[in-house]
Write a protein that binds this DNA or RNA. Structure first.
Lengths: 197, 197
DNA sequence: GAGTATCGATACCTATCGTAGCGAAAGAGG
DNA sequence: CCTCTTTCGCTACGATAGGTATCGATACTC
């Protein structure tokens, strides 16, 4: 096989990119944490990362995609702790709640989600690059059909983000527990009715 | 009693305001519906309403407050159909889902909510002028404490808005039914545990 | 008719996203 | 060592939007 040219692994010519992605991600989260999503401009993020704004736009085509990649990097896959469906769901909900509570993540999440409402291309990206991977992972782990996993995500993420957006701070543990109870009960004994009919 | 001066009902001097608020509200919703929240600029809304932009800023101090008033006008109080708590909750959830599905309302809702995430003053206004009235009405009608009504609102509104924001269209009836079932069951037999502990 | 406040129109300021152009630097290969 | 390609930082620019300032005209009260 010809490996020296035309293959993806071939090193491209020219000056290689400097490895500043992680620095930019860190600068993004801390800036969002300190100033909020709207005031975390690309200029400010670039300045904090010690990088030119043009460098950021060379790697990410828009602020929205930068945030999406930043969140993917900060979150990683769902830990999936537990064996039963109830345990998996419970740990997933608490993992999401904890992540949303981490500095910058909740605001960035709510911010990019907000932008996507009136920005169809960004919504497409958010759906394909962010929601779909987690949805597929959960479909596989929970053994539930797509419809119900989408419902699960809407309820859990929607509830937590609404609280975060409305109060400015993450949901208290007691309410997260209530959310876990409510969702688990719904999925436990509502398996043959409700939205799949 | 002196009624001719100093009373709130005394007519203020100067040219009276023309009664175009309703026209502006209609223009706002139709513009948001056609162009989305972000592209529904104040200039465009003013043009559609046949009104100068300065007139709008004379009545509403910001785009966010215009949207909040517009939503209050379009929604009105919760109808509160039914007598039992279950009926009241069910009709409330379906009423919210239906309203969010009406042209312009869902987008305006999600849009102003999004802006509020990184705009603390707007969040304050949204909380005080929009959420609080509905919360108090529901507290009274449902006979539940503030904590639980807030949880109810987070779950219902958060879920419906997340679906709306993610897909661009309102939640299907089958999923609304699932939401009703889940919430009703939670409040029915979880009254002594969960988040009030 | 005097006073007051709103109306429409236009211009303007500021912030932000995103792009263009340029010389300098970092590598690969001859 | 020289060339070629691409990224780097920098500065400037264009486009859009929220919001303000100003001004003559107008509507209504006293």
């Amino acid at each position: 096989m010809v490996m020296t040219r035309g293959t993806a692994s071939a090193r491209p010519p020219g000056r290689p990119r400097s490895g500043v992605n992680a620095v930019v991600y860190a600068a993004t989260l801390s800036t969002v944490h300190e100033l909020g999503y709207a005031r975390a401009t690309v200029d400010r993020i670039a300045a904090r990362a010690g990088v030119a704004k043009t460098t950021i736009y060379r790697r990410w085509p828009s602020k929205g995609e930068l945030i999406v990649d930043c969140l993917l990097d900060a979150l990683g896959p769902v830990p999936l702790e537990g064996t039963s469906q109830a345990e998996l769901m419970s740990s997933t909900i608490r993992w999401i709640a904890a992540k949303i509570g981490e500095p910058g993540i909740g605001d960035a999440f709510a911010g990019v989600f907000s932008d996507a409402v009136s920005d169809p291309p960004l919504r497409e990206i958010l759906s394909a690059r962010f929601q779909d991977p987690y949805r597929l992972q959960l479909q596989d782990a929970l053994g539930e059909p797509e419809t119900r996993v989408l419902f699960f995500i809407d309820v859990v993420v929607g509830t937590l983000l609404h609280r975060m957006g409305m109060t400015g701070s993450p949901m208290a543990d007691a309410d997260v527990t209530a959310l876990v109870d409510m969702v688990l009960r719904h999925f436990a004994d509502g398996a043959d009715k409700a939205e799949t009919r």
